[in-house]
Design a protein around this nucleic acid. Structure first.
Lengths: 160, 160
DNA sequence: CTTGAAAAATGTCCCGT
DNA sequence: ACGGGACATTTTTCAAG
């Protein structure tokens, strides 16, 4: 009888380099990535497939220019709930998930409960969002909005 | 003499559908996208190239799983500056740009000046970030941290 | 716009080391 | 695991309706 081989294979430095390259530019072909990490095409290809299967990669997407597509207004909303029951949380989760204006939603510790990142095309749209979509959510006790004057950084790249 | 033809070609509904598909999954081939937007491959291909050239698309990237790569701690930092001179702002901009932990930085209106989204692997790393990297920035008058308990939504997809 | 074709580039997989 | 090479798919360009 032998011991089972561990199926748990941790990322090594080469995997990290591959992921970094894919984070920076997913349109690179396997050869380009292979050259940058110092391997040939085959092992690079296999590693990428493995990283995908192991769910290191959520997906491959195109990032759009907010300015070009008329989503120049970004607002952060600090939201406080009146109650904190599980049903309320689940309901809030569901409501937020269905709002396309909401690009980020975080349950946070501190002086308020949720932080929302909202992207809209103009003030009129924001007003409609705040009045018709946000404020209709039950048990919402307080909303404080901060308008973004300038986006200095908006990165999808994690340090590895 | 004739009037010049406008080189300004606005996006139509098909372009929006294409961009939406690319936002959702950039790994789709042209045929798949063509089917979804109701065109054949050739014009779909041409439209994508045109949208890229016209800078509608910032880039194509792989999105990683924060949990799988040991970046489970997300913190939002509300930062107030003591002064608001142009030099100070420019310096702050530069400093922030060089910090890989900072995934988002927004100059905002309201009770504080900047909102930072920071991703780190553990509390020790956060402490090092806060003490060695953030607090050393001159003229920083106040930092208030909100730790993310749960990420309900983190989307790169703009509504179109 | 559509269809279809063709060449070039890439992705994908098998095999020998 | 890696590297090379063969094969499949896709990208990219083009012509004709």
């Amino acid at each position: 009888m032998t011991f089972k081989t561990e199926n748990f294979s941790a990322m090594d430095e080469i995997d990290k380099k591959i992921l970094m390259q894919l984070q920076l530019n997913a349109k690179q072909n396997t050869k380009e990535i292979a050259d940058k990490v110092g391997l040939s095409v085959s092992p690079t290809y296999e590693r990428i497939k493995k990283l995908e299967q192991q769910n290191y990669i959520k997906g491959y997407v195109a990032l759009l220019n907010g300015t070009k597509i008329e989503k120049s207004i970004i607002v952060f909303c600090q939201i406080s709930l009146a109650k904190h029951s599980k049903e309320l949380m689940d309901n809030f989760r569901k409501e937020i998930g269905s709002l396309p204006e909401v690009m980020g939603c975080y349950h946070v510790s501190g002086n308020y409960d949720f932080l929302l990142k909202v992207a809209v095309s103009d003030m009129n749209e924001y007003q409609k969002f705040a009045v018709d979509k946000l404020s209709v959510i039950k048990e919402l006790s307080n909303v404080q909005s901060s308008f973004v004057l300038e986006e200095l950084k908006n990165d999808t790249v994690y340090e590895l």
